[in-house]
Computed example of a mutant assay.
Amino acid sequence: MKNRFLNISKLALAILVLCTQANADSFLVQDQQGLPLKNVVLEFTVNSASTSLVSGPKTLIMDQVDKLFKPDVLVIHQGDFVDFPNSDNIRHHVYSFSSVNPFELKLYSGRPEAPLQFNNAGVAVLGCNIHDSMVGYIYIATSKYVLMTDEQGLATLDNTVKYESVNVWHASALTSIKNITYDDITKKANDNALFVIDLVVQSPEPRNTFQSIFNQNGE
């Protein structure tokens, strides 16, 4: 009876996996060496503009921990707010020169007075005026269909979403935002039925500064 139960459980798990795969488009993003890339943002343009709109702004968190921005990359939508708590026991001076939303939060500890709203689509590069090696990114999306790859370079989109193209962004990519059409993506499926996206990236220096990253991204 126990073995029969285990066999049924395995079968149910296999069916679940197959159903999940059948109802999703899976993407693998890799660099020029064929290595997976994490923290790649995939923003999908859908067939109907009205279905891609995001309703109601949210407030998301970009923390500062151990002299690092946490997370490294924060994905939000146009109109969302971002709170910048300082969880370190030292003060930070957070700022961005990026044209999508230049701002400055002068030397502070704890929490700033109020979250900041980001109304323009694009990428904001963040720095700290006190600790120049602190670099973070906020990706402001227009479409509600936006994903970010995991440690294995993978991301999954429900296949009920009918998209025309995808904008691909990575902090180290030589092209700031790469647009790929649906037809071009579907032509590049590998043996595991993953849609493969190739990016040319440059290896970051061990201690990149905000200024070098900002210039690299052309902001």
Rank of each mutant, 00 (worst) to 15 (best):
Y137E: 01
H77D: 09
I15A: 02
K178P: 06
P36W: 00
P115G: 01
Q216I: 09
I8H: 12
L154K: 14
N167H: 04
S48W: 01
R4Q: 09
L74S: 05
I185H: 07
V17K: 12
A173M: 04
L13M: 11
I8A: 15
P102V: 01
I177M: 09
V135T: 05
S165R: 08
M62C: 06
V54F: 00
D72N: 07
G79L: 04
V123W: 00
V40G: 02
V146C: 02
L105A: 00
K58M: 10
S55Q: 15
T181D: 03
D31V: 13
L147G: 03
N167D: 05
L68G: 04
S172C: 04
F103W: 01
P115F: 00
F81C: 13
D158Q: 09
M148N: 06
V65N: 13
P112G: 05
S26Y: 05
R91M: 08
I138R: 02
T181I: 06
L35R: 10
H93T: 07
Q117G: 06
D31G: 11
F195E: 08
D183S: 14
L37A: 03
L53P: 05
N86H: 03
L60K: 07
N179L: 05
S143V: 10
D25E: 14
V168M: 04
K162F: 04
R91T: 12
T45W: 01
L18M: 14
L199W: 01
D83F: 08
N129I: 03
L16M: 09
V168S: 02
W169Q: 07
K58S: 15
A141W: 00
